[in-house]
């Protein structure tokens, strides 16, 4: 299971890559594996909107499951990955790269402290199994 060391994670299997005060959000390798073949992605937030941490930003569907993706931090949406809905399979093939979902302007950096680092996420997954 690929868990890049430079990202932060949530217990709902989202990741966030922090670059200055910009966060990029997607779902983890573990999550895509659990869902299996992703057939549908809908991003339900739009550029310019402001959202709170924990609000839903995207919906994913595989043949056998559905998942809501939540924002790990609060802030203004800077960009959404417009090409992802046309290529949902990217979530399976490149969850940490091309399958990013939204970029967000991090409003309160202290919210990041509540997230898991790579080791913490690994431990969390191990406990779940």
């Amino acid at each position: 299971m690929n868990i890049p060391a430079d990202l932060k994670y949530t217990e709902n299997d989202e990741w966030i890559r922090v670059d200055g005060n910009t966060g990029t959000v997607g779902i983890s390798d573990y999550a895509q594996d659990q869902l299996s073949d992703i057939v549908f992605v809908e991003i339900i937030v739009a550029e310019g909107e402001t959202h709170k941490k924990g609000e839903s930003c995207a919906t994913l569907e595989s043949v056998k499951a559905a998942a809501d993706i939540y924002l790990p931090v609060s802030g203004k949406i800077l960009a959404v990955n417009e090409s992802l809905p046309d290529k949902p399979e990217l979530v399976n093939s490149d969850p940490y790269g091309e399958a990013w979902m939204v970029k967000i302007e991090i409003e309160d950096a202290s919210e990041l402290d509540g997230l898991l680092d790579a080791a913490g996420y690994q431990e969390f997954l191990a406990k779940k199994a």
Binding site: F40, E61, S62, V63, K64, A65, A66, D68
Partner: peptide
Amino acid sequence: TLTAREQHIRREK
């Protein structure tokens, strides 16, 4: 098809 919309998968959602 599109069964991921349905109650047995989405449950309360």
